[in-house]
Design a protein around this nucleic acid. Structure first.
Length: 133
RNA sequence: AAAGUCAGCCGUUCUAUCGUCUUCUUGCCAUCGGUAAGAGGGAGGAAAGUCCGGGCAGCAUAGUGCAUCCCGCCUGGCGAAUAGCCGGGGAACAAGGUGAGCAAUCAUCAUGUUACAGAUAGUGCUACAGAAAAGGAAACCGCCCCAUGGUAGCAAUACUUUAGGGUAAGGGUGAAAACGUGAGGUAAGAGCUCACGCUCCUUCGUGGUAAUGCGGGGGAAUAGAAAACCUCGGGAGCUGAAAGAUCAAAUAAGUUGCGGUGAUGCUUCAUCACGAAACUACCAAAGGGUUGCACGCCCGAUUGUCUGUAAAGAUAGCCGCAACGGGUAGAUCGCUCGACCCCGAAUUAUUCGGGGCGACAGAUAAAUGAUAGAAGUCCUUUAUCUUUGGUGGAGGAUACAGAACCCGGCUUAUAAGCUGACGAACCAG
């Protein structure tokens, strides 16, 4: 597994309706403005340790262009900074399904997303560590 | 002129790094997939709203009515199209020019506008203001008559108070005041009467493919809005890609239970008897279909075996219903070229073959991207030169917006640029 590469292929995306429903029903979550991460430790059908889905609510962003833009920004930041989570989960030999929700009201720029999402990811890693003990 | 408004056209480009979906080729792992590399392709004029019309798919389909939805002047062209667009014409309306008329109004000219069937089928509505807002209703001011009191006057009469009545001409309110103008008439007035005029219906003649125009006769009515309901005419079977198909059987086979039929009546023919054929009814005996509803219509087992003297009964088969069973947000297909044109063949409205024309993203919790830099275009400012311009510097702007089965339209959103129209001044009055 070439963990150093910043890829984001089909298998790294969370594409199963069932799993998403499972996260919403029984997953744990942390919030940190403007992001919210929900996850559940489960077995996946892929060899990657994590599958991610990104959601932007239609309530706050009526136009599809805005929603697409936000999703793409979050995806880029995740793609470039996912290695920490990967190595963490691989060391625990676990797999995880994650749902990222953007709760802001304005379309952010790249710098803002990078700064805040990285912080959120850190909190997420800490939460995983706590839970596995 | 400039700003601006409206309509149409157009809808910037390149490089680097890191990524993404898809097709093909090659290598490796390995077996129908994974992975790596390379090459090709990867949002729009509206992809949007989902407002019309189709293709395609499934289900349904004798027929009629009701409901629901869509369309609404005529004609020619394009078109699959009763959609839409373009051209021509008709009608209505608007503010103008010219002419006729006492006037209302009419004729004509050019321009613009029109979801342009019906408000004279019916029900309801018409804010505010106003006395009154739709049975030809309504009396605030005004006008007139009669009675009565007062003042002035010799008197006629004039002014005036109060009560009753008449009056829709005038004023005022309003988007709109219930036909308009002129004359007669009257106490004052009024379609009360007459003439002319406006609107609608009908009939005859005539021009036009038609919408409809012109002329004559007869009749009726007189506000607006049909984008309030509605009426008339024309059209539409219903549901939409989460359609639908396939993935070992795929809500099948099979099993069980319940109900029914098996075994109704009548007519004709035939026989010693058994029987045969057709019809009808309960709605059959249960049930099903007609996919919004109703009427109506249609489908639907009735064929054997056994027991019994017979009546009848049992059962197979068949029909219907219910339960069990198997499946359940996974994969593949649909899913990416065509409602196009020409020729030939078969054949009778389709198929096959060949050629041409124009297109050629195919994702599925959602690919087509992110970051950095540069160019282009436009604006502001500034410097300079060979000054109606050119060349530099600095700063700013670069819209609306993201495919979701596919087409043809409509509607709405749009920076900058381009094109056209309107729009100032001047002249005249």
């Amino acid at each position: 597994m070439p963990a150093s590469r910043h890829t984001f292929t089909k298998d790294e995306r969370l594409r199963s309706r069932k799993l998403i429903e499972k996260i919403i029903e029984e997953g744990k979550s942390i919030s940190m403005n403007p992001f919210r991460i929900s996850w559940t430790i489960t077995e996946l059908t892929t060899t990657f340790p994590v599958q991610v889905a990104i959601a932007v609510p239609k309530r706050f962003f009526k136009r599809a262009v805005d929603r697409n833009r936000i999703k793409r920004l979050i995806r880029e930041v995740y793609r470039k900074n996912k290695s920490g989570i990967y190595s963490l989960l691989q060391s625990k030999e676990k797999q995880c399904a994650i749902l990222v929700v953007f709760n802001g009201r304005k379309v952010p720029d790249y710098e803002e997303v990078e700064k805040k999402f990285l912080l959120t990811l850190q909190r997420f890693e800490e939460a995983i560590l706590k839970n596995s003990r």
